[in-house]
Design a protein around this nucleic acid. Structure first.
Lengths: 216, 216
DNA sequence: TCGCATCGGTGATAGCCTCTAACTGTCGCC
DNA sequence: GGCGACAGTTAGAGGCTATCACCGATGCGA
């Protein structure tokens, strides 16, 4: 991808940064994001604590990089599913698979936010990528019309700057939003373990919500 | 409430514990649960760090107490709404109001869990209280039938030990589960700020989901 | 009423963490 | 070949959780 020829130093730097993030993901997967320790990562990599600060100015910057990667990974998963011709159902399954692959990665994006935290601008772009794929699929063939509702009118009237390409088709917007919120509802409760011990299969609840939106 | 007459010491102890939790909630509301510091609370209360450990054995125990209180508070909100004759719509509004009142309190229950954490047994009881109220309201008058679906059959077949009282009415179970997941979907995305900058009103999305389940 | 066990509070301390500062060695570009 | 930029080091400040040993007050039973 048109990278202006990298110096060996830049190369090395990028490699180490990647390795740091690798270790960070392992920590997060086993103990959650709040337990992430730069110090521990440094030790694992055989170097002393402060060395890490050459690569990430502070803990927040590392976490932000991880969030960025998580968004990127989700966007990729969605994009490749869409490229493979997946419809709304397909995207839903791709999202679920991606989430179950590493629950803490999903929760890093959609879980509890730190009150002050502001996501960097480029993650907005990645969110838009995901929403755009959703919007495209939300206009797919074989979808029945959504019942008219106040929400439909509200969405039609709202200035969805992020979805201007589809502002002429509020129906899509409506379906995409409902799709997103319902799937997230099931997924996040499942990942947080709130279904455990309730005796039913989260996959079936998820499938039912997919059908409710993707219609027949 | 039939408390076996309290000694002055127990009385004082309970008061201090309450005050600690009060400060803890303030910290959580402004900086999130992960930033909660026993040390800081002690200082705020004018005593030295280790003193707090007389009241809560460790950080986890304090957080567990807060989670318990959060469940209790939610259960109370739901119960009092139900006692006031609220139907499904009413419960939904009560839940949303309760969540918006203190987003981090909602997220303490339904947000990102620490991978190893096991909720204490009595919170299961409180969850059941909430679900029971939902189940009661899910059988209210004026509700159209849910379309038959694989999920309906699955729920009917699953041994929902937590809902034995309604095992003969799987329709209620179905509606309650869908109610819960859809509302949580909208609410958690709103609280996490994922709707910000999208140009529509979360309250309308929420209302639309309520109508979709509570029917007309 | 008195004695003493229990309880709440203290400072000291160990061990973790983030992050800064000053210093050293090394790599690679001109 | 030399120099500048960069990666790494140790030392250390300051914060945190948590434990320990030690006091002083409190309130209960005898």
């Amino acid at each position: 991808m048109g990278a202006t020829t990298e110096s060996p130093r830049q190369r090395y730097r990028a490699q180490v940064q990647e390795e740091i993030k690798q270790h960070a993901w392992e920590q997060i997967a086993t103990a959650g994001a709040s337990a992430l320790s730069l110090n521990a990562i440094a030790k694992q990599m055989g170097m002393s604590g402060p060395a890490l600060y050459r690569y990430f100015a502070n803990r927040d910057e590392l976490i932000t990089a991880l969030i960025r990667d998580a968004y990127q990974s989700l966007a990729d998963a969605i994009r490749s599913a869409a490229a493979g011709g997946a419809d709304l159902r397909g995207l839903a399954q791709a999202m679920r698979a991606w989430a179950l692959e590493d629950p803490q990665r999903y929760l890093l994006i959609y879980g509890t936010p730190v009150p002050g935290y502001q996501a960097p601008d480029d993650t907005r772009q990645l969110t838009n990528d995901v929403m755009t794929k959703l919007l495209e699929a939300a206009g797919g063939a074989g979808l029945g019309a959504l019942p008219a509702s106040p929400l439909g009118e509200h969405l039609a009237a709202s200035d969805a700057g992020w979805a201007t390409a589809y502002s002429a088709e509020p129906e899509r917007l409506h379906r995409a939003v409902v799709f997103w919120t319902r799937l997230h509802g099931v997924l996040s409760l499942e990942l947080a373990g709130h279904f455990s011990g309730m005796g039913f299969d989260p996959a079936r609840v998820y499938a039912a919500e997919v059908e409710a939106v993707a219609g027949h």
